[in-house]
Write a protein that binds this DNA or RNA. Sequence first.
DNA 1: GGGCAATTGTTGTCGTCAACAACAATCTTC
DNA 2: GAAGATTGTTGTTGACGACAACAATTGCCC
Lengths: 164, 164
Amino acid sequence: MTASAARTSRRKRTGNGAARRIDADEIGLDALVGHAGYAVRRFQIWIFQDFIKTLGDVDIKPTQYSVLTVIGANPGLSQMAVAKRLGIERARLVHLLDSLEQRKLVKRIKSKEDRRSHALHLTGQGETALAKFKRLAAEHERHVEEKIGKANRERLLQILAGFT
Amino acid sequence: MTASAARTSRRKRTGNGAARRIDADEIGLDALVGHAGYAVRRFQIWIFQDFIKTLGDVDIKPTQYSVLTVIGANPGLSQMAVAKRLGIERARLVHLLDSLEQRKLVKRIKSKEDRRSHALHLTGQGETALAKFKRLAAEHERHVEEKIGKANRERLLQILAGFT
DNA sequence: GGGCAATTGTTGTCGTCAACAACAATCTTC
DNA sequence: GAAGATTGTTGTTGACGACAACAATTGCCC
């Protein structure tokens, strides 16, 4: 049916149609190639793994990094505002902030304007730590460049700019 | 510090530095813009949601679709081969196939060459169903085109071709 | 050719994460 | 002031990846 059915293999046993011993890279994906979602999913897995590995020493994962970055750039934000901006549920953000607060990177300050909400700030430690995280994140970004090419990375960011 | 700190708001109360009432779209992302991983993650969320919605009537999710497509294009594959090719763990694939087999889309046939393994095939129902799924998936792909542009989608697939 | 390592499918556990629902405290609105 | 909305919190559920253990079977090695 497809081209892959005619390929050879380490232990070929063609003819009866049953199980041949084949390698993963000779399996045809057929319609799957040409699906943006599939390519994006695989790429996203790769990129997250590299991020986690590159920031492994400081134990910061992508979501934590995004939270710290947004708070650093917008001190005093409420949890609701951060959650909405990053597309995180506020229930999830609670635990994320619990962890970051325990590590003394972030502090929740009771707002006086709205006593329901917390104004989020980086601690002193948090600021210097974030600076280091950003350096490591830049290193990770260089890995992306090495993987797909500098120009392609630029183009990718341009294409997906509407989703930030 | 950042430009966003000087912006206005619905209920501005600048000066004391505490909580202002601000909208999500006026929060600066600072360093987050320019991170490929963040853009890709947001895009992937959007694209999966659209896929799930578009294939909602037939209740097929992206992973199920990828499994059916690979089996359809390579009949007789073992579970191990499918798992390796799609980057799914074989433990996870067990449940996926249980579900697809219950829905009479896929059948596991005991292989005679290697009695440990199962040769995976689509059923008759599975073939006609997959044809329908592919039509819906093509519709989803058109949504992607409308979102980012036809040329950009092509370029995206080209850039990420190495991850399929 | 007999024994040992590797592979395949399966089951189970653990930790992460998104999606909800419910709740108390507080704010907004009328 | 009362009713409804919002904020942070807690808890539950289900999907998912990573791992480990296991039986059945195969491949390999001496």
